[in-house]
Write a protein that binds this DNA or RNA. Structure first.
Lengths: 143, 143
DNA sequence: CTTTTAATTCTTAAAATTTATCAAGTATAA
DNA sequence: TTATACTTGATAAATTTTAAGAATTAAAAG
């Protein structure tokens, strides 16, 4: 059985059609998904849960970190916990892409933890700017 | 005249009692303020704007980056743009404190920009974990 | 200083988002 | 297969955010 499915069972949840579909969609997705996009992808799978079900499910799945919520530029995004990464956020088209970073940040994290007597569990790092496509677009518009 | 006041005038805004108070409260605050905390601090100053005014003001002030919005753990926080810094977020008491970090991140940022042909404008970095006080508390509770 | 102009505020209402409740349905364990 | 308890959909309620218009007020003009 799927690892995530197991986690759901362990945390006391049942493997319903809707719940499995949400997890599957997020698993098969490259990066972050907004609630809206998630619902669209479920619709393609012929699954159209009620609004309240979506809210309940996202609350349930985020509760024990089966999925992770991340708010970027005022919008909530969801993803399956993956190998650690960060995000590039385009301020023009709002696209979000994954990016990995060298290990130096981890060293700094340990240093900060020590200096501030803070027990750091994890971190989030987002870079805001303009993606390659939008840079070209925006320059054209200025002409 | 206050630098921020000037910026407001330049961007076409007027210096009303409420607007000045909001900017003043944020200026005199150590770090981030939630909408709720902001309203509390205004009340102390005998300023009690209507809900809609608060929303309008925060929209107005964030529009041209006179103040900056940052969503952490699902809550919107506001602050005056300051010398660049990051945040330590306590997962237990939800306190947020400022922290500065070495310059290595800037180098990595340039590298990432080049690799991804991404024009990076800025970034946000939050460390999540448990503050010193809460660590002690949580250990006691376990006994 | 007074008048004029237009931004801003308050009030009220509407729209949008999120949560709660409960009967009916369904996954799971026995 | 049956009993149990979780889950869903439907409805309504609560919360948050935005909109519209009249009254107020900051700022510019006279």
């Amino acid at each position: 059985m799927n690892t995530i499915y197991k986690t759901i069972r362990i945390s006391g949840g049942r493997l319903t059609k809707t719940r499995k579909a949400i997890v599957d969609v997020l698993s098969n997705n490259q990066c972050l998904l907004s609630k809206q996009k998630l619902v669209e992808k479920l619709k393609v799978k012929k699954i159209k849960p009620d609004r309240s079900t979506i809210y309940r499910e996202l609350r349930f799945l985020t509760k024990d970190n089966i999925i992770i919520k991340n708010t970027i530029a005022g919008v909530d995004y969801y993803e399956i916990p993956q190998d650690h990464h960060h995000h590039l956020v385009c301020l023009n088209c709002n696209s979000i892409s994954k990016v990995k970073i060298g290990s130096h940040l981890e060293k700094q994290e340990k240093q900060i933890a020590k200096q501030n007597k803070f027990n750091i569990i994890n971190h989030s790092l987002e870079f805001y700017g303009y993606c390659h496509k939008c840079q070209a677009k925006l320059i054209k518009e200025k002409l």
